[in-house]
Amino acid sequence: MKNQWTSYLYGIVKVTIAGRGTERFLNDCMRENVVVWNVKRSKDNGLSFYIRLQDVHALRIVARKNDCKCRFEKRVGFPFLVRRSWKNSGFVLGLLAFLVVIFVLSNMIWGIKIEGASPETEHIIKKELSNIGVKTGKFQFSVKNPDDIQKSLTDNIQQITWVGVELMGTTYHLKVVEKNQPEEEELVGPRHIVAEKEAVIKKMFVEQGQPLTTLHEHVTKGQVLVSGLIGKEEEQKKVAAKAEIFGETWYKSTITIPLNTTFHVLTGDTKDKHFIQFGSFRIPIWGFGKNTYKTYEVEDDVYYLKFLNFTLPIAYVNETFLEKEEITRKYTVKQAKEAALDRGRLDVEHNLDDKEKVIGEKVLHQTNENGKVRLTVLYQAIENIVKTTPIVQGD
């Protein structure tokens, strides 16, 4: 018989019959739509076979019409398993309670390990984790995912440069890279300080060495600004030149800004749907109804359930629909020009350090064609132009 496993769910009974007309008994079973399978002849010329639990009543009717003796030998299947379990309900309930407890404990947070942080920084990290709800005893699916935890820690703790967050079993593992304090300068050999690029000197502080240039002087790339040779020519001494020199430099940029730009933005309106996921199949449990947003983004937060150290193919899924709308931004020529200047300035500042900055700009060329404003701009910046080069024999 095909699909015996479905019959097992509803119950299977093994039947033996003996006496006259066993073949006729089987024929009558067929007429009464009693499904039989695994028919075997026994040593005493009787027959044994299997039927479904739901056909027992029909079999009794057939047995009354024949001279065969009918006996139920074996009962297997889920209904009989439940009946036997009910007799030992204490043991079954204890087993189920044990599995439920293990399942619940496997989906909680029982440890937070932090590596690479000093005791002070570790205390700050644990305090921030507690503020965002990541603490021992909390359910894993009730806290942020590791990526969001990482972003929150990096944004709110100034003492760290990077932190990696990984959930292994019931423990969060954090690997921290702290911001390094300025280290003492290593001993270096004799050297000159030269200009890294063409500039006009605007600020100059020489700590060690012989200055060869002055403020407001135009210097070229590679020109020696501070010599590492000090003293008279016949008694020159080689030292490691050290200075802080800022110069005015120039960056030429070409920026194009369209007068009309169409793009999508989030409206702030959202709709959540909740699912229980088995493998790739999802069963909705909350948030029914069709999504009515014309344009939208979808974000999925998937939390897999765990049992001991195993990740089960069962997950809770929170699917969020973020409504988007199309916006057309319109610039006048003047506004487009200002936007182009701002964009160019940001591009230049992206390559500068904290002590460096853009101090001016000059539009070299402007065109307005095909609905676009195109600017060629020269930006003036103040930046560190120091570059060191070792003193070689013959300098």
Rank of each mutant, 00 (worst) to 15 (best):
N145C: 01
T154Y: 00
V194K: 09
E183K: 11
E244Q: 14
P182D: 06
I230G: 08
G247T: 05
E235Y: 09
I160C: 02
A240Q: 09
Q236I: 01
G169D: 09
Q140E: 09
I149Q: 06
F263I: 01
I193C: 08
S227F: 05
Y172F: 15
T214Y: 08
T213L: 09
E207Q: 14
L212H: 05
T154S: 02
E186Q: 14
P146F: 03
E217M: 12
F205V: 15
I230Y: 09
A240P: 06
E196L: 11
V177A: 05
V177G: 00
V239P: 11
T254L: 07
Y251I: 03
Q159G: 03
I149M: 04
V265L: 12
K237P: 00
G169T: 04
G209F: 05
V224S: 05
I157P: 04
E244Y: 10
V265S: 13
Q150E: 13
V176E: 02
P182L: 10
L215M: 15
K203H: 13
P190T: 02
A195H: 11
I201P: 08
Q159H: 07
E186T: 05
T249E: 08
V265M: 09
A199H: 09
G222D: 08
E178T: 01
K202H: 03
I255Y: 05
G169M: 06
V219C: 08
I193M: 12
G231I: 03
P211C: 11
W250F: 14
H192F: 15
T220A: 11
V200R: 10
Q208L: 13
E244K: 13
K238A: 15
L225V: 06
T261E: 15
G164Q: 05
Q158P: 00
I157V: 12
Q210N: 14
G222A: 07
K151M: 04
K151A: 09
G209C: 04
E198V: 10
V177E: 12
V226T: 05
V200K: 13
N145P: 03
T161L: 08
Y172T: 02
E248G: 01
E248S: 09
K238H: 07
G247Y: 10
E217W: 02
V239L: 13
Q208K: 15
A199I: 03
V177K: 03
Q208C: 10
E207C: 00
H173L: 12
G247P: 09
G247C: 10
P146N: 04
L212W: 01
L167T: 02
F263Q: 13
T249G: 07
S152A: 12
E178Y: 01
T213W: 06
V219Y: 06
L174V: 02
Q140S: 14
V188H: 10
